[in-house]
Amino acid sequence: MTVFHFFNCAILTFGPHAVYYSATPLSEYDTLGTSVKAALVYLGTALVKLVCLATFLKVSENDSFDPYQELLKALIGFIDVAGLYFALTQLTHRNISQNHKFQAVGLGWAFADSVLHRLAPLWVGARGLEFTWDYILQGLEANANLVLSISLAALGSLMWLRKNKPKTLIPIIYACAGIVATMPSITSYLRRGLGWHFPEVVGFELFTSLVMAFTSWQLFAACQRPSS
């Protein structure tokens, strides 16, 4: 099993990022620098988040779902949004279009997230003797996360970078962004509060990520139309 299986899981976890980069025009415009910067911002954000979590959160003894704690966690989760805002607006990029910018940022963001959260467990666990589906599911989760990150970045760029968007769409954009940003809390609730198993949670994530991707794509296209 072992190393081969590890490679399989690694391909599933990190392959889509590479494919996304090379298949879309991102590679043609050489936006790697943007992605790397976004990844660095993600690292910083993760550090800040970690400090906040350690400061404000009690370590729960049991694995139950505590609404207050989860609310706090969700609030801390919005630090992510702040980090994304910084990456999208404050970082000076080479002159790339907004279209590519959000994709590059989302990609870098998701890739850094995957590396930080999934590489170590993969390395430790997937090479073990026992076969579990966990690591394959985790890889699928990484895919869902990539889609969600890019959706969030797209929505973010709509919110902060695009000035002349239709007024009617603004609440929808904000609502969608809110949903995507609270995704970690929602899955956490499903897992602990409702006792869903990992495969079900991953299935849910995949489904929502596709729905959100479609929605944000439509929103983006709708905002594009009047300006173009």
Binding site: M1, N8, E130, F131
Partner: peptide, 23 residues
Amino acid sequence: IVASVTFDLLLLLVLGSYLIILF
């Protein structure tokens, strides 16, 4: 379960085709 190399090969195949389709 202890999966065999055969399983891993098939998994690789599946993943490969997935990435190709995605691309």
